[in-house]
Amino acid sequence: MGVPDADGQGPPDGLPGLPPEWGRVVVPDDASALAEEARQVRRELRRGPRHTHRPARVRLGLPLLVLLVSMLATLAGLAAVTWPRPQRSGDAPTVLPRATTAAPSAVGPLPALDLVGADDTPVPLRSLLPAMIILVDACACADEVGTAAATAPAGVTVVTVTEGRRAGPATATGVRPLGDPAGGLRSYLHLAAQPGTGVALLVDRQGRLVRVVPELGPATDYRDDLVRLAG
């Protein structure tokens, strides 16, 4: 037997009892009277999945998409930094040059300096012009100085200058060794001493520096300049 409904009436014969919270259940004689309720139930069923499941997928999908894009961007940045780059054919390795002090090609007239001779007497620089003045405080360069003395034409004085109060020794015939107590020549020309390198200054009769040879080498490098100084 079924459980009575809300009005105290029992269920029809052969039907199970219904929960009392459903209230009074009326079964119409004409089934067409339920058509509107049936359409509403079908409409709710069709609309239900779209409103219940899709927002959940959207709410879950957006954070995952943002996380995936962030991970890909991070991996791409790491690959760009750490990935080895192939060296192109024909590329030469980068070589950093040794820091040097560039020598001026011509700086105008030299100052009226007084150098020091072997007997500690002052020697005015302008009294030796025209001259090839070789700075030998960083390099004795005896062979190169001897070559310059042998190449210099008559009337051109070859002078070796050592920074300090003492003149260096005469390393070749016809060479005048002098000292530069105050280092005036290097200071005026902004020339830093490079170990093992002799620098030559070619000065004409007017005291004008016409050329600087930053590293004294073969006579072919400056022979024509010496001839012009003598002219």
Results as ranks from 00 to 15, higher is better:
89 S>L: 13
229 L>M: 07
87 Q>C: 05
181 P>E: 10
86 P>K: 04
25 V>M: 04
176 R>G: 03
228 R>Y: 02
153 P>D: 10
107 V>I: 12
29 D>S: 08
142 A>W: 01
161 V>W: 03
175 V>W: 06
122 P>N: 13
32 S>W: 09
203 V>P: 03
125 L>T: 05
182 A>M: 07
48 G>Q: 13
66 V>T: 01
49 P>N: 05
74 T>S: 00
202 L>S: 08
225 D>N: 06
115 L>F: 10
200 A>F: 04
12 P>K: 10
90 G>F: 14
203 V>E: 00
85 R>W: 09
201 L>Q: 04
143 D>L: 11
59 R>D: 09
76 A>W: 02
46 R>E: 14
168 G>V: 08
168 G>W: 03
78 L>I: 09
68 L>R: 00
133 I>S: 00
89 S>P: 13
161 V>D: 02
146 G>T: 14
114 D>S: 15
123 V>C: 10
116 V>R: 02
174 G>R: 09
55 P>R: 05
69 V>C: 01
115 L>Y: 05
195 P>Y: 06
79 A>P: 07
82 T>R: 13
80 A>W: 14
76 A>L: 09
140 A>E: 14
129 L>D: 05
55 P>Q: 03
211 R>F: 04
68 L>H: 03
131 A>L: 09
71 M>V: 02
96 L>H: 13
195 P>A: 13
15 L>H: 09
51 H>W: 11
53 H>I: 13
230 A>F: 11
154 A>M: 08
159 V>K: 01
113 L>T: 07
115 L>E: 04
208 R>W: 06
171 T>V: 15
15 L>D: 03
94 T>L: 14
186 R>T: 13
188 Y>T: 13
205 R>V: 09
179 G>P: 03
42 R>E: 15
103 A>K: 06
158 V>K: 02
60 L>V: 07
212 V>R: 03
205 R>Y: 04
6 A>T: 03
143 D>T: 13
53 H>V: 15
49 P>H: 08
174 G>E: 11
31 A>W: 12
